[in-house]
C-alpha cells in the first residue's frame, strides 16, 4: 500500500528527513521479518538433519499443531502490547473447552452456532482479568496468576471427575478439526482468519491503535484523553474471546476433553509472542509476528520430536527461546535508540 508522497514542494532549507527515518522504522517495525528468516533457517536445518522433515505431510502436521498456538499467541500478543501479561490462558482454555463442550453435548442438534459457547466463556474469563487489572489496579502478573488457579479450580469443580468423550459430541465438532476446505485444513483457515482479524483490529480500528499507544507511553494517554483503563479492559476481553475460540479448537482436536487440558499453554503462548518480535516492554509487535513466532515454536517442537530428542529438550528450547528473544529484543531496542539519536545529532550538529 504505497502512501502518496508528501504533496507540495517542501521549502528549500527544510530538511527532508524521511529517508533517514526509514532505517529507524525498518529496524523496529518489521521484526516479524527477522523471525520469518529465522523460521526458514530452522526449517532448512531440520530438513537437513531429519530425513522426512520437509515432506508435505510433516509440514501439514506442523501447521495442525501450530494452528491452535497461533490463535493463543494472537490473544497473548494483544495483551502484551499494552505492557501487561496473561498467565491464565491455559486455565481459560480448560474451563471454556469443558463447560463449552458440555453445553454442546446437551444440545447436539443446535449445530455449529454453539461454537459461541466456549467463546463466550473465554470472553467472560478475559473480562474478569480485565476488571482486576484495569479497574482493580492489580499488577497483571499477580492478577492472572490468581485467575489461573481460580479458572482451573472451576473447571475441575464443574467436571467433578467426569470427562467428555469425542463419541458423545455431535459429529460437526470433530469435522471442524479434521475437514478440509479447498484442500486446506479448517484449523489452518481459522488460525489465519484470526491473524487477519487481529491485525485488522490492531491496525485499522481506533481501539487497536490505542492499544499500541497505551503500551508505548501510558502517561501521554492522559493528555490525549484516552481512557487507558477501558482500553486495557477491552484488550483482556478480546484476548479472552480468542482464547475461547482456541478452547473450541483444542476440544475439537482432542479425542476427549478433561479439566487438566492445556497445562502450561500460557508459557508456550508467551514464548511464541516474544519470539515473534512483540516487545515485552509494550507498544510494538504485530499479530502476524506472534503467529510466526507460534509456527516457529511448533516447527522447533516437531523437529525435536523427529530427532528423537526427549522431553527436556522441548522445555529447554521454550525457556531458552524466551530468554534469547527478550535479550535480542532489548539489544535491538537499545541499538535503535542509539541509531536514531546518532541521526538526530547528525541532523542538528
Amino acid at each position: 500500500m504505497k502512501r502518496r508522497s508528501t504533496p507540495g514542494a517542501l521549502q528549500a532549507e527544510s530538511l527532508v528527513v524521511a529517508p533517514l527515518n526509514r532505517a529507524g522504522v525498518g529496524l523496529l517495525r518489521n521484526r516479524a521479518l527477522g523471525v520469518s528468516v529465522f523460521l526458514v533457517l530452522l526449517g532448512l536445518l531440520f530438513s537437513g538433519l531429519a530425513p522426512n522433515f520437509a515432506t508435505l505431510g510433516n509440514v501439514n502436521t506442523i501447521a495442525l499443531n501450530g494452528a491452535i498456538l497461533v490463535v493463543v499467541a494472537c490473544a497473548e500478543a494483544i495483551v502484551v502490547i499494552t505492557r501487561n501479561y496473561d498467565l491464565s490462558i491455559g486455565s481459560t482454555v480448560a474451563l471454556a473447552s469443558y463447560v463449552g463442550l458440555d453445553i454442546v453435548r446437551h444440545f447436539p442438534h443446535a449445530g455449529p452456532i454453539l461454537i459461541l459457547a466456549p467463546v463466550a466463556i473465554g470472553t467472560i474469563c478475559g473480562a474478569i482479568n480485565g476488571v482486576l487489572v484495569a479497574y482493580g489496579r492489580l499488577p497483571s502478573v499477580v492478577a492472572t496468576l490468581g485467575t489461573m488457579s481460580v479458572f482451573r479450580g472451576l473447571a475441575f469443580l464443574y467436571a467433578n471427575g467426569g470427562q467428555i468423550n469425542g463419541s458423545d459430541l455431535p459429529p460437526w465438532v470433530e469435522r471442524t478439526a479434521t475437514s478440509h476446505i479447498f484442500g486446506i485444513s479448517t484449523l489452518l483457515l481459522v488460525a489465519s482468519a484470526v491473524v487477519v482479524l487481529a491485525s485488522l483490529m490492531l491496525g485499522k480500528l481506533r481501539i487497536g491503535r490505542q492499544i499500541y499507544a497505551i503500551g508505548s507511553n501510558p502517561e501521554a494517554a492522559v493528555f490525549y484523553g484516552l481512557n487507558a483503563r477501558r482500553v486495557v479492559f477491552t484488550a483482556y476481553t478480546m484476548a479472552g474471546m480468542l482464547t475461547g475460540l482456541a478452547a473450541f479448537l483444542f476440544a475439537a482436536r482432542a479425542s476427549w476433553i478433561v479439566p487438566y487440558l492445556a497445562q502450561g499453554l500460557e508459557l508456550t503462548a508467551l514464548a511464541a509472542v516474544v519470539v515473534g518480535g512483540v516487545s515485552v516492554l509494550g507498544g510494538s509487535g504485530t499479530a502476524l509476528g506472534a503467529a510466526i513466532g507460534a509456527v516457529t515454536l511448533a516447527t522447533l517442537d516437531n523437529g525435536l520430536v523427529l530427532l528423537g530428542a526427549s522431553e527436556f529438550a522441548r522445555e529447554l528450547m521454550q525457556g531458552a527461546a524466551i530468554v534469547v528473544a527478550v535479550v535480542v529484543d532489548a539489544l535491538l531496542q537499545r541499538r535503535l535508540r542509539m541509531v536514531l539519536k546518532m541521526m538526530r545529532d547528525r541532523r542538528f550538529s
Binding site: 508467551l270 516492554l281 534469547v324 532489548a330
Partner: peptide, 23 residues
C-alpha cells in the same frame, strides 16, 4: 544489566532451569 522486566527473564529462566534438572 539489560534493564528488562524481571517477569520475562525469570519466565524463560524457569524453563531453562527446569530443563537442566530434567537433563
Amino acid at each position: 544489566l539489560l534493564g528488562l522486566p524481571s517477569l520475562a527473564i525469570t519466565l524463560g529462566a524457569m524453563g531453562v532451569y527446569r530443563a537442566i534438572a530434567l537433563l
